[in-house]
Structures are given as C-alpha cells and as structure tokens.
Amino acid sequence: MAPDSLAGVALAWADQPGDLPRHFESRQALEAELRRLFPAAKGNLSPIRGGRRQAEALLSRIQPARYAKGRNFLDGHVTHLSPYIRHGALSLAEVRDAVFARLQAPGGGGRQAGEKLINELGWRDYWQRLWQQLGDGIWRDQEELKTGHHPGAYAADLPADVAEGRTGLACMDGFIDELHETGWLHNHARMWMAAYLVHWRRVRWQAGAQWFLRHLLDGDPASNNLSWQWVASSFSHKPYFFNRGNLERYSNGTFCRSCPLSEQGCPFDASYEQLEAELFAPMPSVRAGNDRSRERRDPRRRGSPAASAALSRPTRRR
C-alpha cells in the first residue's frame, strides 16, 4: 500500500451495495471521489486533515501559558483544535482533561497558566448551551441592533467582491483566501472580517454567517452565528469594530506592508471615535443632546477612550 493511502479501519460486518468507499490510494484519490459523489460541493480538500490522529497530535502540543500570552496575535500560539472539537473527533471534556494534565505536569504552571484556555473552552460550551435553548431561532436577531441603523438598512447578500476575495484590501482578501483554501481562520481574523462585512459594508450578519458555515471546517451555528451576532450587536451591548492600528498590531503589519491602500484609502485608518461617527448612526434614546453624563451611558463608549481602545479592544472581544 502506498504510504499516502487512506484506508478505513476494518469493519466487523459486510459492506452493502451503496456504501461509500473507505479505501483510497491517496488523498488526491479521495478528493476525486468526493467530487464525483458530491458534485454540488465546490473547491478542494483543505490542507488540514481530519481524524483523531491529527487531533491527538495537536492536543499533545498545546501550551496553555503561551496561549494566554499570544492568542490575540495571528501568529500567536493557538490550538487549531476547533474542527476536531466541532465534530467530536475530540470531546470538549477530553480537551479539558488534557489541559489539566498539562498544567499539573512539572513546569506546567498550574491553574493560573491555564485559566485563559479553559475560559475559551467555556465559550464553546456556552454557545452550545444557547443553541440548545434557541434551536433554529439562532438565525434571528437575539436583541435589537445598537448601531443606530434599521435592520432593513443592511444588504441581504454577500457582495460579489467579498465572495471572490477581491475587495482590494490586502488584509480582507488574505483572510478570504485563507477561509476558502483551508476552512480555518484565527479568531481575530474572523472578528475583523465580520465587523468589516456588517459595519463597513452594511450586510446582514446572516449572509456572512452562512458564508462562513459553507467553508469553516469548524462551522457550527452556535459559535458562528452567535459570534456574528456579537459583532453585529444583536447579542451584545455594543457593536464590535476595530481600526487599522489594531489590525496592524495583531497581524504584525504583514497585510498593511503589501496593501495597495496602505498610504491612502484604507477604510480602517482612523481613530475609534472617527470610525464610530462614520459607521453608526446616533442612537436617539441614549445619545440625544450634548450632556456628558448621557454620552457616557452610550454603551459603545463605556470605558473605551479612543487612545487606549486599540489595545483594550481585543480583550473585550465577541
């Protein structure tokens, strides 16, 4: 058998006519077979391989303390476990136990080193519990938008330039290519894309959520739709948005360096206050008048003066 071959584990019962094949000469052969079996499914296989073995290899490499320090950076240490967890190749309980074991091993750092990672696993559990409660209602706005815009002001469909990854923005086009090619994106990239689509392009979050679900290997209406709603502000006190300084910092400038709009025309190149004024309409009930105490009550402004916002935003995510 070729080293690249993919053979299913042996079955203790006989095949039936119509069973799908469980043996392939190569990954390429699997891809060709899937094209034949699922003609409506577009694109290629992801370079990310499925399966328990891959999942265990990743699990053995988790570093909770490094994770806590670097998780907001695109090149920071994150686990890449989400597709395996989503489909139960690994259960969340197994990941939890592996983290505990790592923390308790010599040099593991104990509880403090693991708090961030365990907290993130908690986010998954939280969204799953909400899905159970909401059912298919997870596709509807959970609360009214806090953007000052009527829901009808948002376009129903994904714009063609976004769907094709030719927005002209090096960052967004890079993320879109990665989504389409690999089916996995860093959390921060997902947040930036969602904010760009919903706030800058003013598209309904559902259009973006649906697009993500087609491509993400970890695509899950719970984590996905509710994160989109968190960005859109139908499941949070304020819309999530970002500026160039934030994206540049957490992507180590990689995109901005090669972006044709770097010098002029970057829609993110502004202070948070400028962007807020540009993207959102005043919320009549909370922002009427010039009264400072009223202004403070605007949920979007709470505790986020523009100067420090570039740094504080990423930790106040979702």
Binding site: L6, A7, G8, V9, A10, L11, A12, W13, D15, Q16, G18, D19, L20, P21, R22, L30, E31, L34, R35, L37, F38, A40, A41, K42, G43, N44, L45, S46, I48, R49, G50, G51, R52, R53, Q54, P83, Y84, H87, A89, H180, T182, G183, Q210, L213, R214, H215, L216, L217, G219
Partner: peptide
C-alpha cells in the same frame, strides 16, 4: 441555499475513516 464546500466533507470523511462505521449518502 448554497452547498457546503468540499473541504468540509473531506474533513468529515477523514475523521470517519478512523472509526468503525459504514458510510452512506
């Protein structure tokens, strides 16, 4: 509605090949 991309199906398929399970469509 639009179909799920091939890479998602491939990911599931590779998980399934490591389990004792018959596959149908």
């Amino acid at each position: 509605p639009q179909a799920v991309s091939l890479k998602r199906i491939g990911f599931l398929y590779e998980c399934l090949l490591e389990l004792p399970v018959s596959l149908r469509h």
